[in-house]
Design a protein around this nucleic acid. Structure first.
Length: 118
DNA sequence: AGACCCGGACGCG
DNA sequence: CGCGTCCGGGTCT
């Protein structure tokens, strides 16, 4: 599987960092905006969410593997609820990541970019 | 310059 | 435990 042509897309350096970080998330694994922020040195998870929202590489960049720090699903495609979220949960479920009561069922699936858990 | 954003932390009830 | 509030960083108009 070859990396998507990040250079072929019209994005900002920051977005590129976010996308590359997202691409590091292995299949069947998830990450939070916070950890992703730490990985790329961003102190504002909102900026990350916004970058993912404007993600022009939607299918290539697994933005659906990024959830909130409290282990809730978070938003998706600009919405914090709705059918898009359902699809996000479904995609994750197909990867072995299940949610329970709006929270991830297995926190062990969290990918911390090699960093230590808080 | 101003408004907007897919979150997070904190304080309080 | 749930909710309300402020915050910061980045991008688009």
């Amino acid at each position: 599987m070859q990396p998507p042509p990040l250079d072929s897309v019209d994005i900002t350096p920051f977005q590129r960092r976010v996308y590359e970080a997202a691409l590091q998330i292995p299949h069947g694994r998830v990450t939070t905006y916070k950890w992703l922020g730490m990985a790329i040195g961003c102190h504002s998870p909102r900026a990350i969410g916004q970058a993912l929202r404007r993600n022009p590489l939607a299918p290539d960049v697994p933005c659906h593997r990024i959830i909130a720090a409290d282990l809730s699903a978070g938003g998706f495609s600009g919405q914090t609820s709705g059918p898009k979220i359902s699809k996000k949960l479904r995609l994750l479920r197909e990867e072995g990541v299940t949610f329970h009561k709006g929270k991830i069922a297995d926190p062990a699936r969290l990918y911390t970019f090699g960093l230590e858990s808080p």
